[in-house]
């Protein structure tokens, strides 16, 4: 008898949580970075268009590529890869052409971020948001002025740095610290980068790509080499934190909407992309996750507290001085190796 009761209880529970609405216009499978589009925006889209959004997340470009390649074609409709990953995905023939003319909100985008080298005519990708890797410093704990990546090597900072758990970023800054390009694959350059990282190792408290701001806010870490919006959010929670753009120049990126080859819900995917490009919607996105906005119309709606905040709205001179990561082809195995060696 008891078992039957238990069963009934569970079925009730299932029923309670299971009262799913039916969506008239089908669904769309979005595979996006964690912490990128607020939940409320997605719910609103579902309501307005009567389309169910299956939203899943990844925390690096490589993870996105791996998951897409190991899934049946057409499993995901929308992906949000960065610049160099668009290039790789194009080479692997993973992307569907996007007819930008059909996107009524495409014209809202800032032309400075269109027609980039990885997709010269924006045939396959629609810029969504941009940003960079910056240094966040807790001024109460760190007295010195940090201006360069090389300043991070100071032995005083033992066990106090949080780094993004991303090999292109970490190796990239090591290369930049030594005056090389983010994308250098020469053995001597990588050897110097390795030297730099081994010297940095005792100072590293943890690697975290998903929530590096967390350890900065709780003051477990006093320096972070992190995405700019993470730094901005950390500053919001803990006013001791300041942002530094290292003088060697930043690692910059543009993340783009793309539609994966064989996507089953192409129409819905276009609707979703167009929806996000709406200035009002984009405003909500960048106020929630304050990366660099690339939507001109949205800029007109944003308040000064966003526009004048350098951690959020990275100044154009810094962006122009920054460097993109590019696909380095087979040389990536050199990076993979170096990464395992220094970790």
């Amino acid at each position: 008898m008891k078992k039957i009761k238990l069963l009934v209880l569970f079925i009730l529970l299932l029923g309670l949580t299971g009262c799913n609405q039916k969506y008239e216009n089908g669904e769309v499978n979005v595979f996006n970075w964690s912490e990128y589009i607020p939940d409320s925006v997605i719910r609103q889209f579902e309501k307005e268009y009567d389309i169910k959004v299956n939203y899943s997340t990844y925390s690096s470009n490589e993870e996105c590529l791996a998951k897409v390649m190991s899934s049946k074609t057409g499993t995901y409709d929308i992906l949000v890869p960065s610049d160099y990953m668009v290039d790789i995905m194009l080479k692997k023939d993973l992307l569907e052409k996007i007819d930008t003319a059909s996107l009524t909100n495409f014209s809202n985008l800032d032309p400075n971020y269109l027609n980039q080298s990885y997709d010269p005519n924006n045939d396959y990708s629609v810029p969504f948001i941009a940003g960079g890797v910056v240094i966040a410093v807790n001024k109460q704990k760190i007295e010195e002025n940090i201006t360069s990546y090389n300043d991070l090597l100071n032995p005083k900072y033992k066990d106090s740095i949080v780094l993004l758990d991303d090999e292109r970023v970490v190796i990239g800054i090591a290369l930049k610290a030594n005056g090389y390009s983010l994308n250098d694959t020469n053995d001597y350059a990588l050897a110097e980068a390795k030297e730099f990282l081994l010297e940095l190792k005792p100072n590293i408290k943890l690697y975290d790509s998903d929530n590096p701001k967390g350890s900065l806010i709780t003051e477990e870490a006093s320096i972070g080499v992190i995405w700019n919006a993470e730094a901005a959010l950390a500053i919001g929670e803990n006013s001791n934190i300041e942002i530094v753009f290292p003088k060697e120049g930043i690692y910059k990126w543009i993340d783009n909407f793309v539609i994966s080859k064989g996507a089953k819900n192409k129409e819905n995917a276009l609707k979703f992309i167009n929806y996000i490009l709406n200035p009002e919607v984009m405003k909500r996105v960048v106020t929630y996750f304050p990366y660099k906005n690339v939507n001109q119309e949205t800029n007109k709606l944003l308040s000064d507290s966003y526009l004048n905040n350098e951690a959020m709205n990275i100044p154009d001179r810094i962006m122009n001085n920054g460097e993109f990561v590019i696909d380095i082809g087979e040389n990536i195995t050199k990076y993979d190796r170096l990464w395992s060696e220094i970790k």
Binding site: A66, D165, L206, Y207, S340, K343
Partner: peptide, 16 residues
């Protein structure tokens, strides 16, 4: 904190 690499982490990384 992503610093202690265990065999499980390496396998996961190689696959994903």
């Amino acid at each position: 904190g992503g610093k202690t690499m265990m065999i499980g982490n390496v396998i996961k990384n190689q696959f994903l």
